[in-house]
Structure formats: C-alpha cells, structure tokens
Nucleic acid binder design. Sequence first.
DNA 1: TATGAATGAGTCTTCATTCAT
DNA 2: CATGAATGAAGACTCATTCAT
Lengths: 209, 209, 209, 209
Amino acid sequence: MSAVHPTKKEVVSGYRRACILKAARKVFARHGFEGATMDDVAEACSIAKGTLYLYFKSKRQIYMGVFKQDLQILRETSQRAIDAAHSPGEKIRAFVTSRLAFCDRNNSFFKIYNSDASAIFVTPHPTHKELKEFYFEQSRVLESLIAEGIRSGELREVSPQAAAFAIYDMTRSLVSRRILGLADQAPLDEEAGVLLDLIWRGIGKDGPA
Amino acid sequence: MSAVHPTKKEVVSGYRRACILKAARKVFARHGFEGATMDDVAEACSIAKGTLYLYFKSKRQIYMGVFKQDLQILRETSQRAIDAAHSPGEKIRAFVTSRLAFCDRNNSFFKIYNSDASAIFVTPHPTHKELKEFYFEQSRVLESLIAEGIRSGELREVSPQAAAFAIYDMTRSLVSRRILGLADQAPLDEEAGVLLDLIWRGIGKDGPA
Amino acid sequence: MSAVHPTKKEVVSGYRRACILKAARKVFARHGFEGATMDDVAEACSIAKGTLYLYFKSKRQIYMGVFKQDLQILRETSQRAIDAAHSPGEKIRAFVTSRLAFCDRNNSFFKIYNSDASAIFVTPHPTHKELKEFYFEQSRVLESLIAEGIRSGELREVSPQAAAFAIYDMTRSLVSRRILGLADQAPLDEEAGVLLDLIWRGIGKDGPA
Amino acid sequence: MSAVHPTKKEVVSGYRRACILKAARKVFARHGFEGATMDDVAEACSIAKGTLYLYFKSKRQIYMGVFKQDLQILRETSQRAIDAAHSPGEKIRAFVTSRLAFCDRNNSFFKIYNSDASAIFVTPHPTHKELKEFYFEQSRVLESLIAEGIRSGELREVSPQAAAFAIYDMTRSLVSRRILGLADQAPLDEEAGVLLDLIWRGIGKDGPA
DNA sequence: TATGAATGAGTCTTCATTCAT
DNA sequence: CATGAATGAAGACTCATTCAT
C-alpha cells in the first residue's frame, strides 16, 4: 500500500502537488479566482503550465485543493486548542482565539476562504458545497461546546445554534476587519478579550433582569 | 429646470437607466461581476448591447450604479426606522431589524453587496472604496447609538466601536445564512429576537457578577 | 434653375454642406480617416450626427467632399498664378511657388491630401481615383509648360513627362517636410529658390561637357 | 550560445516569427494598418489567432516588426551598393538605383512604408518616430555623398541637404508612381537614367551661365 | 428638416486547456 | 513525466448607420 511504502514516484508526486498548492495559494490570495491565471500559478512554482494539468484537472480543482488543505489545517489546529482546554467556557474561548490566531497568521488563506464564502452566493460550485459543510461542521463544534456549557450551568439557556452562529460570525468578521486594516490594529489578545467579553455578557446593563 | 419640468427625454433616459440597473442587478446577483456579460445584461433588459454604453461607460460603472442605488435605499430605510424609535435600545433594535428585513426582501442586492465585501480583499477597485466607506458609515451610526445608550445608562460600559462591529457583523451574517438557506428558515422576527437577546445579554450565566 | 434663383432651401442646404466640410476638414486632418468619428465631425460643426446623413451619404462621402473642394481651390489658385506669368520659365516657377504657398497655408488640407495619396496604395477607393486624376491633370499642366519651354528654347531637351513628375514630386515632398517640421524652417521663398535652382541647373558641375 | 548553436526551439520560433511577418506584410500592404484584422493575419499564415500573441504583443507590434525588418534590409542593400561604387557620383547613382530596384522588387513593403510615411501626419505613433529617424538617416547618407562630391569638384556648390532631400524625394516618388502604375512602365534602368540625368543637369538650357 | 437614441456587426485581446515532442 | 507552443472560444467595447419623433 502506498500508505506503507510510498514509492519514489508517489513522494515526488506528493511534493509536486504540495508545491503547486503553495504557489496557488499565494496567487489566488493576490488576484482572486477569476483574476489569477494558470500562467501565474505555473510561474509561481517554476513549473510548466502543462504540468499543472498532470496534477489537477482544472484551475478550479487547484483552487479547491488549496481550500481543502487549509480547511483541514484549521480544523486540526482548532481541535487541538479545544482539547487542551478544560471547561466548556475555556473551550469556547479556545475556539475563538485559535481561530483568530490562525487566520491572522495565514491571511492569504483567509482571503480566499472569505472570498469564496461570498462567491457561494452566485454560482454554486462544488467548492462551495465543501465550504458549506465545513461551515456547518465548525459551527456544530461550537454548538456542542455551548450545549455542554449550558448543561454544566456555566452558560445561561440560549439557543446553542443561534449562539454558535453568532460567535462564529463575529470571529470571522473580526478577522476580516483586521486583515483589511479596517479596525485599529490592537494586539490580537486584546481584541479577542473584548470580543469574548461581549459574547459572554452582551451589552445590556444588567443580567437576566 | 429639470427638477421642475423633467423633459420627456429626461424621463425616458431616467427610465432606461433604471431599467438597465434593474436588469443588471439580477444578472450580477446570479453570475457575479466577472461571470456576468454585457450581453446578459443587454438581453435581460431587451436592448442592444451598444445601448448600454449610452448610459454607462463600462461594465464596472453599471455595477457601481446598482451598488450605489441599493446602498442609498438601505441607508434611508434604515435611518427612517431608527428615527421612528425612541430609546437608544429601541434604536439599536430598529437598526438590526430594518436591516434584516431589507436584505431579506432585496436578496439580489445582498448577494452583490456581500460578494463585493469579499472581493475587497483582492483587487481594490473604486467600488470597494465606496463599500468600505459605507461600511464605516453604518457602523458609526450604530456606534453612536451605543454610546448614547451607555450615557443614558441603558447599556453597560462597553467599547462602542467593538460592540458596533459585533452587532453589525452578526446582523450581516444572519442575513447571509438566511439567503443561503444555511439556517432554519424561522420567521425573521423570531430570529431577530434571538439575535437581539444574545446581543443584549450575552451567553454568560450572570451579568457583572 | 437653381443656378439662377437659388431657393432659400438651397442656400441653407449649401451653407450646411459647407459647414460640414469645414468641420470635417479639421477633424480628418487631426485624426485621419479611420481615426475620425462621425461624432467628432458632428460635434465640430455643432450639428446632430443624424443630420450629417441628410447631406452626405456616408463618412467616406464627406471625406471625398472635403477633398474635391480643396483640390478645386488649389487648381484655381495655381492656374491663376500660372496665367499671370509670362515666359514658360516663369510659369513653371509660378506653378511651384503657388503650390508651396497654398499648402503651407492650408496645411490641414495637405495632411489629408498627402495621407490619401498613400492610402491609394491600399484599398482603391473612389476617392483615390479622383486623386489620381487630379495628380495626372496637374502634372500634365506642368508637362505642357515644360514642353513649351523646350520649344521656346528656354529649356534643354528633356522628357517633359519625367521632368514634370520630378518637379511635382519635389514640390510635394518639400511641403511634407515643412509641415512635419522635418527640415529647417527657412522662409518659404528661400526654400523655393533653392529648389528651383536645383530644378534648373541640377547638381552637376558643368553641362553636357 | 544561441548564436552558435541555435536550439531547435529557437529555429522554430524564429521561423514562426518570420512566417508571421511575411504574412502580415502582405495583409498590411493590401488593407493598411487599420483595415487589416488579426484574423486576416492569422489566416494568412495558417495559424490560430491566439498564436499571434505568443510572438507579438499586439497588432501594432507586428506592424512595427514588418517595418523594421524591411527597413533594415533596405539599409543594408543600399549600403552595399554604395560601397561597391567608387566616385561620389557613382555612389549617388548607386543610392538611387539600388533603392529603386529594392522597392520595385519589394513593393508590398513600399506600400506600407509609404503609407506610414503619411500617417505620420496624424497620430504620432512610435512607428512613426522610427520612420522619421530612418528618413533622416538615409538622407544624411546622401547628404554626405553630395558633400564629398562637392569637395572632389565633381558637383557644383549646392546645399547638400537640399539636394539630398530633392534626390531622395524624387526617388521615392518615382517608386510610388511605378507601383501605382501611374507612369509608363518603362524599364527601370531607363527611368533611373532619366531621373539621374535630371538630377545631374537640371532642366535649364545652359550650365552655370 | 433635424435630432440623437438605438442598433449590432466587428475588433482586439485574454486565457483555460490540449497535445505533440 | 514534463514541457510550452498552439488553440479558439469568449468578452468588453466602438462606431457607422438607421429611424422614430
């Protein structure tokens, strides 16, 4: 099995794919899907244009490749942070901060991710389905953390789904603003702190009332 | 003066522009900016391609035209709702609900708006600058409502800007999910209620404690 | 007959044609035939584009109109100068100098004329035939002046046709250079003098010898 | 190095460029720059339209390519003929006759060359600058031959520049007439002889007088 | 007669994809 | 496997000409 003894061929092939994806990520982040050309990608990884087609069936396949790879990494990073936390509250905090940190670091990924999240509106491509699933998967992760928090009494009785979406969206949007330079570039921790405070306590003067 | 006695020519010309914008809105919503062709737009309003260029200098100008028109309407609708409310809290609620209602109704606008909000990441076009300004303008409206709420003691001491962004983003994202069919299609009021509850009280068990 | 009692209609019509030709001359001189647009012409004579088609069947017809009009004036100017001279030698000089002076003054005409003289090479349009005929007509005028000079003993026995062409061409080219600013802008008289001296005596040290 | 061992690729590429230029020359000669389409050119050398853009950046670049190539050949041909002659007089004759012969053979070049020489009047394009320089370069060659002839006593004291222009222009115009079929198609030698006789001795009855 | 809005054929150029070497 | 030359479909935009008013 290739899993056991990757042949030399497979190693080289894997290397090539990785190289293409890396180059493509940069290119797509800079020019967007439509704006990027296969020539750009080929040049960015010092490879012939035709070769790209040996590893990916089309421009869109490359795009999806970049996408899935990043999503996978984000998933894992996020999961690790959650696992390392102990209370539901801490886990939710971990979800938010790990995500903020990841996107802050990999902003070329985020640009693509976010761009696509909108393109989803227009032509529904396979990429989009993938994204949709990821979106749900992630918000379900959050949802179950919230549900657990409610059970443990750490959180008040809210709709786990609604709360999950709200947190998820605020997180995503905060990243957007930071990457676009639309907000003051306060340290990430601080911004995360403010955001978590809002999530936790809302803006109202007094609790349950 | 044209304001007083719009000539027949002006009426026709105005009608044509409106007609083009209307058709273009649909086309752009369906195919995105890149995906839409001038032929599509022309056909959608049953005029010759060349005619489009009598009213708009370029494809992008049409796009911007659609954009600005919708933005303007949203701005006004929103403002009216805010003005009709009395306490800061009510005004914030009005901001959120009017916006949700507007986007729910005009979803082809929202598709464009949102799509562009992401394209902003890649090539910074004039449209994008416009959008950025609108984004800030709107979040500042919210910001000042929040500041007022804090002064009046209705809200606790939060960062008005951070809170404004958070509310704005959650609202926007909720619309996205609804339009994409990513969430249960509960009645808008209900969803708005849930969202506002979260905004108001957060998810934590008890307030300041 | 209209020649006798031009109706008011004819007068207006004539005025319009003249106005169009005048505007067109400028436009064609500046942008060339291909580069000029009917909009340019219409604007240049403050008239609606459609109106142009009431007076001329097509863009090319306008062009030809400009052309023929100028050619006619040049023809007449030149002829008057020749008639005023007495000896064949003087007449030849008159031919050259009147032409130089005319083109120097009407350089927008000359630009068109010359441009067309070359376009003649490519697609043989009716305009070109006209031009060809004019070219021959003018060189025949010169030819017969030369023949007369030979008969009168003022000129040596040369091929009248060859000499006519040579003189004609040198004159035309001198104008080109002046209009293009390719040569020192000496006073026209002086340049004409040098040219005529060359025509008369050639460059060789001594005659037949 | 490519100069030593042109790779197969270079050979093919060179061949393609040459092929395109050859086809383009014909097309431009027949339709002019504006009248020629990229489709025409592509078809004329039996390649796809897109392929043209692999070798030239734009229509205009192809045009300029044709141009420069021909100019270079004419330059060299002419220079060789001049070098082979011994006295200044012979060299001038060589200049004229080699040029006549060249243009007579390559008349599609001449059509372009001449056409452009006029287009120079309208929009000053880079091509035109190139042409202008060539024009001056060539007339300076002639000018120095004349100056030398004057020094050697073979020619009378004339303005070398004026004489150079005159000869150059007559030569060019003679070619025009021949290509256009405006003159009797006498053998080239004969026409050259007549022209040179005129240049040498002018048309006047007696020498210095 | 005068207008100028409408038309749509025609142009250059780009770029994803194929395929012979 | 790798290459990169070749392809040709597609798209934005122009402009001479027409025609309803």
